[in-house]
Nucleic acid binder design. Structure first.
Length: 435
RNA sequence: GCCCCCAUCGUCUAGCGGCCUAGGACACCGGCCUUUCACGCCGGCAGCACGGGUUCGAAUCCCGUUGGGGGUGCCA
């Protein structure tokens, strides 16, 4: 058995929570950085919690983050006998007693229970403030405290890394372990909470706490892990975005900041953007595929065109879910026109004249990016406009929007026929509107 | 109410007694680049909650105040 053993012990209450993911990550960092072992222990002492789909979600999420475990997962729902034995042991030792069918642990009325937290230092509770707590429910099932203490002992856990919201249960678990004759005290590290803008613990009701929600929006797992590592911890050399292998090497649980950390989606997305830009074109193409498939123009996507056009949007993408709207005009059947965009540029005096000039010049200009660029540049010149201004109506006519990938590259890949047709359509719409 | 924890720019952090007129990142604001938007680059704004100690010297150590948070289930 390895000298360092940790466990990640989620209760399968739904989709994996961001805070749980961070706890899993920090446990994993300690294990992988120390040559220790990490066990996955599912805390499904409560019957409703052992639903297969809930447990699957945990596996899927952890797998997505590439947080791996040693050995098979342990299910508390299958270890009732062990908990029973412990409770019987406490009863016969006189430290637990029956109360309305449940069994309570008798907490000493004097003295203190304390531990040296790796993140917070000494934490001390006076025993008189700890109430006698239930270790076995009237229905015969073990409570969290019992399962926790028994399993940590039985599995040879040496280090417990968990959220700060569990600080107050720690003295109870320590008492239970002592009553079981523990051979060595656990090393505890209570992680700071992840909080929202209101500086409150992330809540399921009002915050996006499901890890899956971020996956669905197109956050890369590597970016998520990197960002999560930065919540409560920071590298001493100030390089925040870096491979997980380096983080494993630099990470030390004792360096973790004890104060709560706000979850900042903007920063997550900024980091995600960096990871997206660092992808190879092939990887990027594969990454956005699931999002493109959901579009109604998905059937029109030409893989070769997509391959050439994807790099144009890669550096403009912060979350993968944004990719379709940057690429749609390459593939749609019925062109959509953003009305704000139309209002903004097509109502200008020069718009009609620019579109007319573009339609006629582009009808037989040489079809390459440089020539297209030059052609539009000349139109701009003749209208005494900067290229940036002059290309606006052309962009809107062709892409339906005021912003998007570089225009001349886009026109080039779209092809002469489509470009001229869209310019014509826009012109017609403009003329009709002016009548 | 009681118990426990926390306190460096708006946010995440570096700092673990002198290297700090406090560094980085995100956000924000200027500028450059430029075919839009981005990217990139340059610059700016902005912080040690307060009060006492300890010390030659405190963001760093101690105490208090204030403020915030967590817990207080036969949930986990």
């Amino acid at each position: 058995m390895s000298s360092i053993r940790l466990r990640f012990a989620p209760a399968p209450t739904g989709s994996l929570h961001l805070g749980s993911a961070r706890t899993a990550l920090f446990n994993w960092l300690v294990a992988r950085g120390s040559g220790g072992e990490l066990i996955l222990r599912v805390e499904d002492t409560n019957a409703e919690l052992s639903k297969p789909e809930l447990i699957d979600n945990i596996y899927r999420s952890l797998d997505w983050l590439e947080i791996d475990f040693d050995g098979e997962p342990v299910r508390q729902s299958q270890r009732a006998d062990l908990y029973d034995d412990a409770v019987e042991q406490w009863i016969s030792a006189g430290v637990a007693y029956e109360d309305e069918g449940a069994i309570r642990f008798r907490v000493p009325q004097d003295g203190t229970t304390s531990w040296d937290d790796q993140i917070r230092g000494a934490v001390v509770f006076e025993n008189q403030h700890i109430e006698d707590f239930v270790v076995r429910r009237a229905d015969g099932t073990a409570t969290f405290f019992t399962a926790n203490a028994v399993d940590d002992l039985d599995l040879g856990i040496t280090h417990v890394v968990r959220g700060e919201d569990l600080v107050n249960v720690t003295p109870k678990v320590i008492l239970l372990r002592e009553a079981l004759g523990e051979s060595a005290p656990l090393k505890f590290a209570h992680l700071p909470l992840i909080i929202n803008e209101q500086r409150k613990k992330l809540s399921k009701r009002r915050d996006d706490v499901a890890l899956e929600a971020y996956r669905e929006r197109g956050i890369l797992p590597t970016a998520m892990v990197n960002y999560l590592a930065l919540l409560g911890w920071g590298p001493k050399d100030d390089v925040e975005v870096r491979p997980i292998s380096e983080i494993i090497e630099m990470f030390d649980i004792a360096d973790v900041n004890p104060s709560a950390a706000m979850f900042d989606v903007k920063k997550l997305e900024a980091i995600n953007g960096e990871y997206i830009r660092a992808l190879s074109p092939e990887e990027f193409g594969k990454s956005i595929a699931p999002w493109l498939e959901e579009e109604d123009w998905a059937g029109n996507v030409d893989d070769e065109v997509l391959r050439q056009v994807a790099p144009l949007v890669q550096e403009r993408t912060r979350v993968l879910a944004e990719a379709p709207k940057q690429l749609d005009f390459f593939f749609w059947d019925n062109q959509e026109m953003d009305s704000d965009a139309w209002q903004k540029v097509m109502l200008k005096d020069s718009a009609r004249s620019i579109l007319e000039a573009a339609r006629s010049v582009l009808a037989d200009v040489e079809w390459n990016v440089e020539a297209l660029h030059e052609a539009v540049r000349k139109i701009a010149e003749s209208h005494e406009l900067k290229l940036g201004k002059a290309q606006a109506p052309i962009r809107v006519a062709i892409t339906g929007r005021t912003v998007g990938p570089p225009l001349f590259e886009s026109m080039y890949f779209l092809g002469r026929e489509v470009v001229v047709e869209r310019l014509g359509n826009a012109l017609q719409k403009l003329v009709e509107a002016q009548r």
